[in-house]
Nucleic acid binder design. Structure first.
Length: 310
DNA sequence: ATTTAGACCTGTCAGC
DNA sequence: TGCTGACAGGTCTAAA
């Protein structure tokens, strides 16, 4: 669910709120969320760890901890972080329907980042609760249980991310490198963009948006794009991801920020989930097709099908 | 060697 | 009201 902009936005919020805090303990309500190490070791090693820094790599959120460890979190489809201020009662109860339903109650709280916004009191699915030494709770909520949290020694970082492509918003994402990656792809360009080895952090929403930006049909073969098409697509990737971050991410369903608020980028999306609506450029109706088992949205006029699709 | 179903999971919504 | 099927920001694995 969260793609690069959503993870980046959460990382920035965490950076301004939990760096320097100490994790007193972790409570795990769905064991499979912890990918590594084994649960007893995870619980033992996480205790009294200081959060020294927050980083992001592709769609991975990284929490640098003391004692040369770091947490690697992948939220997959529905994972979210929610930070509860001190003084709140957290009621993680065992119900018949869902053993990890939680509810919160507390004073009206105004988060420090978006001034004026009030806290969102939705009930979620808490899979892991990090109890901070200052009394706050950092919750990992994840209805579909696909998200994974792993604890690694920092020395392993290069190994873990060896296969990840360049960061699209850094100088490592050059047109040259992008071109080389695409030439090796004999699939459609949409599929290539979803391949994290080509570029790190793009998912279904921003792949569609970037292709629309560059007026390229999603089924166009990746290895047959012209140089000017690749330049425009490169520009489009940077543009749509940057805008996504500025708008606090895209929430059409589950994504929420650290304070439980929805991202505003859904109001700025051009094609994603817009089938049947007129294209902002030419008024042609946006269409939907399935590519690589993923919903794909495009303007049939602006993004004309290439002469050779297969 | 690729491509594609299936798995992992729960929730929501449209249609009957 | 209740059931059924389609679908949802992702990625891995096994079968074709």
């Amino acid at each position: 669910m969260p793609e690069l902009p959503e993870v980046e936005y959460t990382a920035r919020q965490l950076r301004s709120s939990v760096v320097g805090a100490t994790i007193r303990e972790a409570r795990v309500f769905w064991e499979r969320t912890i990918g590594r190490p084994q649960l007893p070791d995870f619980l033992a090693e996480i205790t009294e760890q200081r959060i020294e820094g927050i980083r992001r790599r592709g769609k991975f959120l990284l929490l640098d901890l003391s004692r040369d460890l770091f947490l690697s979190i992948h939220r997959r489809m529905t994972g979210n972080f929610l930070l509860l201020p001190p003084g709140w009662e957290i009621d993680i109860r065992l119900s018949e329907t869902d053993p990890v339903a939680w509810k919160t109650k507390g004073p009206n709280f105004h988060p420090p980042v978006s001034a004026g916004a009030s806290y969102n009191l939705e009930t979620g699915h808490c899979r892991v609760c990090f109890v901070l030494a200052d009394g706050r709770y950092l919750l990992f909520t994840d209805p579909r249980k696909f998200g994974r949290i792993e604890l690694w020694p920092r020395t392993q970082e290069d190994v873990i991310f060896a296969d990840l492509g360049p960061e699209p918003l850094s100088h490592t994402f050059t047109v040259e490198r992008f071109t080389e990656a695409l030439v090796r792809h004999r699939t459609g360009i949409k599929q290539a963009l979803l391949d994290q080895q080509v570029v790190a952090g793009i998912g279904n929403i921003y792949a569609d948006e970037a292709l629309y930006y560059a007026c390229i049909h999603p089924a166009h073969r990746a290895d047959s794009l012209t140089s000017s098409e690749i330049h425009l697509l490169h520009e489009g990737i940077v543009a749509v991801l940057t805008l996504g971050i500025e708008h606090g991410g895209t929430s059409f369903n589950d994504y929420r920020d650290l304070w439980g608020q929805a991202g505003q980028n859904y109001n700025h999306v051009r094609v994603y989930h817009q089938e049947g609506k007129p294209c902002k450029r030419c008024n042609t109706l946006i269409e939907r097709m399935v590519i690589a088992q993923r919903s794909t949205h495009f303007c049939p006029h602006c993004q004309a099908a290439p002469a050779i699709v297969e």
